[in-house]
Amino acid sequence: MKLEDLGIIKKIRLKDVNDKESDWVNITLESLEEIQKGLNEARRDILMSYERCIACEKKMDNVRYWEINGISIDETIFREEKHQYRFNRRVEVIANIEELIKEVEEAEKEAMIKDIDYLNSLKLEDEYILSHVSINDYVAFSDNHEKFNKICKEILKLNKGLIQD
């Protein structure tokens, strides 16, 4: 009887994290397929965590709207604050803070200046950022791509729910 008759396709040596080789191990076609499936899922998860969600502002018939990865986002999500973050053009956020800073108490100015400094420190590619609707918190892809992508995916999920309703 051959190893192939038992479903064993290969004898391999495994390595542990310290590069120490194991004894020879028989591997079956089924276990090889399971290993490959697990590797493919892990690879997909890694790629998704680094894949950039592309957010952009569009205009049609003088109406501004947002897209994430080419999907139009229902403005209801932002207007009714269904999510705690919303998209903004970075330069507009800076301009708004600069206007507001003229009218606030001295104690509040320091935090606003820090916000402006942070927003100015971002990369040029961060034309659009996510702003929290009730506190001074900003998320830019170049600064925290995982959080940026996570929020975009949450907004896409909300959007999908609105479309299906």
Rank of each mutant, 00 (worst) to 15 (best):
3 L>A: 03
3 L>P: 00
3 L>Y: 04
5 D>A: 09
8 I>L: 00
8 I>Q: 01
9 I>L: 14
10 K>A: 11
11 K>N: 12
11 K>T: 15
14 L>M: 08
14 L>G: 00
15 K>H: 12
17 V>A: 09
20 K>I: 11
20 K>L: 04
21 E>C: 09
22 S>W: 02
23 D>R: 10
23 D>N: 13
26 N>V: 04
28 T>C: 03
29 L>G: 03
34 E>I: 13
34 E>G: 13
36 Q>Y: 13
37 K>Y: 04
37 K>P: 00
37 K>Q: 04
38 G>N: 14
38 G>V: 10
39 L>S: 07
40 N>T: 04
41 E>C: 00
42 A>I: 10
42 A>W: 11
43 R>Y: 15
45 D>L: 14
45 D>A: 15
47 L>A: 14
49 S>E: 15
50 Y>C: 05
51 E>C: 07
53 C>I: 08
55 A>K: 03
55 A>I: 12
56 C>T: 06
60 M>C: 11
61 D>L: 10
62 N>K: 06
62 N>G: 03
64 R>L: 13
69 N>K: 03
70 G>S: 03
72 S>L: 01
76 T>L: 07
76 T>K: 12
78 F>H: 08
79 R>W: 05
79 R>D: 10
80 E>L: 08
81 E>P: 03
82 K>A: 02
84 Q>S: 08
90 R>H: 04
91 V>D: 10
92 E>L: 03
92 E>P: 00
93 V>Y: 05
94 I>V: 15
100 L>S: 12
100 L>G: 15
101 I>A: 07
101 I>W: 07
103 E>W: 12
105 E>S: 03
109 K>A: 06
109 K>L: 05
113 I>M: 12
114 K>D: 15
116 I>Y: 06
125 E>L: 04
126 D>I: 03
132 H>M: 00
133 V>C: 11
135 I>T: 14
136 N>Y: 15
137 D>C: 08
137 D>H: 11
137 D>Q: 11
139 V>D: 02
143 D>L: 08
145 H>T: 06
149 N>G: 06
150 K>W: 09
151 I>S: 04
153 K>V: 02
153 K>W: 02
155 I>K: 06
156 L>N: 01
157 K>E: 15
